[in-house]
Design a protein around this nucleic acid. Structure first.
Lengths: 113, 113
DNA sequence: GGACTAGTTCAACATTCGTTGGACTACGGA
DNA sequence: TCCGTAGTCCAACGAATGTTGAACTAGTCC
């Protein structure tokens, strides 16, 4: 186990930060993929953007408390903090995910992955 | 000045734009006030920030499709597009409003107004 | 008309955001 | 140990964001 990545506590998840994280289509695509297909490696999202940029977006989702990232060998495994979000902002995640599914280009991105 | 301010059609309301609009605490305070107390004049929100800045934030809410602004004499009346939002992104607005109510400084701002 | 109220517009500015390329570290297998 | 894979870090850059003050317009009331 190398170093642990920092995540906000469930109670410390901030609404501004969550909305900010979910506002970006790339980040919403990542969240939607993880929501539909379960936890995934960072490299699964390379369809959306470049490696460097992915690090940036995943970090934003992690720092906002939307996803959890754990290190497994050479990979980072991204999972959704569904219960933490539901506990703090009931209905919010599902509403955003439903909205994201309505977005054709975004939904196509998720299918292709 | 022309009588009609531009608003997106209900079907054209974009998720990124809505999340973007609701991400800012000042804008969330405005939305919460209108949600709790019904339609209000722009000047009602002067507790939150300056006149100029208010014009900016109200315009962002309007352009995102979150609020409707109509001109009544010398005033602008701001109202929430609750049904349009609910139709497009069910549950989203209520989840955000519930989250906003949990935020003590923001809730206090709304009470004082 | 003149004063008053309500809000807009404009230019300026600092800050943050999203993106990129290149160099870098960490892990696992041959 | 060298190699390929997985991802990070850093510096840079343009674009968007949030804020401000001063000047402006538009409507109301005397």
């Amino acid at each position: 186990m190398s170093k642990a990545l920092s995540h906000p506590e469930a109670e410390a998840i901030d609404l501004s930060a969550v909305l900010d994280a979910l506002r970006d289509p790339i980040r919403r695509a990542i969240v939607l993929m993880v929501a539909e297909q379960g936890e995934k490696r960072c490299s699964s999202f390379l369809c959306c953007t470049t490696k460097t940029n992915l690090t940036y977006h995943v970090a934003r989702l992690r720092e906002a408390g939307v996803v959890r990232v754990r290190i497994e060998g050479p990979s980072r495994i991204v999972s959704l903090r569904r219960d933490d979000l539901e506990g703090r902002f009931p209905g919010l995640l599902d509403a955003v995910l439903a909205g994201a599914r309505q977005d054709p280009p975004l939904a196509r991105l998720v299918e292709d992955a």
